[in-house]
Amino acid sequence: MVVGSLSEDHGLVNRDGGMPRPAQGRTKRNTRTTCPRRPGYISPSGEQTSSEWTQVDSPLVIRLEHVTKVYKTTPRPALQDVSVDVVKGEFVFLIGPSGSGKSTFLRLLLREEVPSKGRVYVSNFDVARMARRRVPRLRQSIGCVFQDFRLLVNKTVAENVAFALEVIGKPRHTIRKVVPEVLQLVGLEGKANRMPHELSGGEQQRVAIARAFVNRPLVLLADEPTGNLDPDTSQDIMLLLERINRTGTTVLMATHDHSIVDSMRRRVVELDQGRVIRDDARGVYGVGR
């Protein structure tokens, strides 16, 4: 059984120019299987699937297997027996009240935390058990966006985006090529030389998204990306995330924003007190609650 891994092959260089394509049907596949699939696996959309289903088109990108996370400081688990699978190219909302475990969920994927029990897979990384020195490789295949943008205030827009590539040792000519490309993708062409404080909140978040996406990650994690933005700007950001999702990048977004979840009609995973209480393929933000 093969679970396609793209972590080695989501190169910066877009060979055809223009937008990156969804990676389906690429010939280069990593045959290492660290994301095992059992027969009778239930897909996110609820159908029983055969094993072929996974091989060609929809490899798993994220899998949590009975994950429990207990922090030393509190006896109540932040996550309790959570199992979630996310297929490549999905757009998933992670919702739930504050303290429901959304942040822990995201931190586990990034290996900022290690689960107390259970296993976490991202692409072909066995996240909880991998060696520490391989963690940077994992993180290179995950992009991150936050509520507070986290831009470097003393660097220009282009420098902020380039920084993400510089620090992972990408060659300069690659950086010179891909940074303008990604700025165009997020709609910031012409603002490359602005400083972050000269931009609106929405534009700053675009820079952050550009920085998260510039290395063409497999997964984009967004933690309340619209939390600081007005509804119209939020809408624009969501359109951008959708566009990124259409390139084949899996998007996992933690949010409180009802209207966005309701209007997008994507998969919704709801957490409450560390448990998954709902996993709808085309969900809305908690109707009956």
């Binding site: 990034l110 020195r133 963690v135 940077p136 490789r137 994992l138 993180r139 290179q140 295949s141 995950i142 991150c144 986290r150 470097l152 920084f163 993400a164 620090v167 992972i168 040792g169 920085r211 290395n215």
Partner: peptide, 8 residues
């Protein structure tokens, strides 16, 4: 940020 984007 360096940690996040996977700098070694």
């Amino acid at each position: 940020i360096m940690r996040l984007v996977g700098a070694t």
